[in-house]
Each structure stands twice: as C-alpha cells, then as structure tokens.
C-alpha cells in the first residue's frame, strides 16, 4: 500500500500538466494489426469485432482458474481515471484519459501462487471478423507478457473505458492492458486470456523480430530501434507543422518505475 500511495501521489501531480488528445484522435489513429496495418484501418474495420458475450480464461499459477465473464472478472473492483502518456514504438505519442482497474486488483482477485513470476496475455482471434488475421501479418493470436512486479505495479491498469465511455473496439474493447512506461505494443488489446507462469512468456513482436523488439520494451530515448531513433517523437493531433517532442525516460514515469530495473543493463534488456 505504501508504494501504491507514493506512486498515486506522484501520478496525481504528473496528471496535472497532461493535455489529453481528443476522443476523435484516440479512436481514429490506431495500431491493431488484426484489423489491418494502416492507422485508420482499425477504426474502419473493428466494428466487426464481437464483444458480447466476452469471456476471459484465467489459468496457470493461480488459485482460482476458470473462464470468467468480463463482468465477473471485474466485479467489485474500483474503476479509476488515469491520464497517461502513450508512446508508440514507431515514434509517435498521444495522451489518453483511460478508465480502468489496477491489474494488481484483478490478479489478487484470482489469486497469485507464489511460484508465479510472469503474466501472459492473449488477444481474441475472430478470423472471420479480422481482416489482418486472414492476411497473417503476424503470428496470431497476439500475445504479450509482463514480469509479475511490472504487472503488480500501481501504474499498470486493465482499461475498460476512455473519456468515461466504454472503450472503443479499435482501442481494444472490452478490456485491454495499459502499461504507460512501455511502448504501446506491450499494452495488449481485447484480452481473452490471462496466464500466470514461472517462465518468460513469448511475445508477438519479439517472435516477429527479436532484434528490434525485446520482452521489456520500456520507453527509452537512449536505446534506438535498429531502424529509427527513439530520442524524440511526433505528437498526434498537432497537425502538419507540429514540432517533435523529446521522448522521456520510461515515458515520463521514471520516478515510479525505474527501481523495477535496478541493476539491469537496459540496452541489453531492451
């Protein structure tokens, strides 16, 4: 609770000076390769995603495994507003006012066994509704993972809304991860499975290109992507003549999360 309180206090301060993007920006500029690789493809195609009913399989090293309906999984947990910077690995960024539940609350609810060291997540696959799945842009289902301390960190949330509205399908309805100090692709969308493991789970972009996308993928202006610089980014919503902004260490959440990586060489564990 101590750490949570400190992080929350820092967060409240940090939220003050962030100006969220418009809902239109947030819902019209997306990477969701199951619906196509263009930035406007998810907004055009995601309406086909079926989200009712929604079931999340919880398995692995948990006390209460099972298939949870989205309502059951989140029932009784507190939804908070979190205004976070969102930094894509492609060097663009926006600010999103999420509504979500701390992932730690969900994990505590299902009961973490002591051997659990990592959490793995999986995105839904509905081939008939997902044009990008038919085109095999990636090895679907999309999978992601976090170390257990990253997953339990108070900044990590399971988002269910944006601007107080249920989260749009192109943004990962009905629930998606948000890990604000990591590149956006870590914040896996439309989650249907949460598994606790004692090994580092495979992650989609790492499988596609391990040299370019590491397991950690923390936002880091000092470690370039092999094909482009990560030291600055384009700002979504600023128009054609917007200035680039410098990228911040851990996307501006260094005070809250740097200690998770004490003693790790971040250019090795990128």
């Amino acid at each position: 609770a101590g750490l949570g309180a400190i992080a929350a206090a820092g967060l409240a301060e940090a939220q003050e000076d962030l100006q969220p993007n418009s809902l239109e920006d947030i819902t019209s500029y997306n990477n969701f390769y199951e619906f196509g690789t263009g930035k406007s493809d998810p907004a055009a195609n995601a309406h086909k995603l079926e989200i009712e009913p929604w079931s999340v399989k919880v398995d692995g090293l948990v006390d209460n495994p099972g298939d949870y309906s989205s309502a059951d999984l989140l029932d009784g947990l507190t939804v908070e507003e979190r205004i976070y910077r969102f930094r894509c690995v492609e060097a663009w960024a926006m600010v999103v006012p999420w509504n979500g539940i701390e992932l730690a609350d969900i994990l505590n609810k299902v009961g973490i066994q002591s051997e659990a060291k990592y959490v793995a997540f999986e995105t839904v696959v509905q081939p008939e509704n997902m044009i990008g799945v038919q085109r095999r842009v990636l090895d679907f289902p999309y999978v992601e993972g976090l170390r257990i301390d990253e997953a339990m960190h108070p900044l990590t949330i399971m988002a269910t809304g944006i601007y107080g509205e249920p989260i749009a399908k192109q943004n990962g309805a009905p629930m998606r991860l948000v890990v604000p100090w990591k590149y956006g692709f870590k914040s896996i969308k439309s989650i249907v499975r949460i598994s606790l493991t004692d090994y580092e789970p495979p992650t989609s972009w790492n499988k596609a290109n391990a040299r370019e996308y590491g397991f950690y993928s923390n936002v880091n202006p000092n470690v370039d992507h092999p094909r482009w610089s990560q030291s600055s980014h384009r700002v979504i919503g600023g128009g054609l003549f917007a200035s680039r902004e410098p990228t911040l260490m851990f996307n501006g959440y260094e005070a809250e999360v740097a200690s998770l990586y004490d003693g790790m060489d971040l250019s090795e564990f990128y």
Binding site: E24, S28, Y29, R234, G239, L240, F241
Partner: peptide, 15 residues
C-alpha cells in the same frame, strides 16, 4: 494534409 483532417490526426507521416 495541412488544412483538413483528410490524412487523420497525424498528417506528417501520412503525407
């Protein structure tokens, strides 16, 4: 790109 939303919310890369 400069004066409309035709290229979406990030027109630099789109153009």
């Amino acid at each position: 790109a400069a004066f409309t939303r035709a290229f979406g919310p990030e027109p630099i890369n789109a153009l």
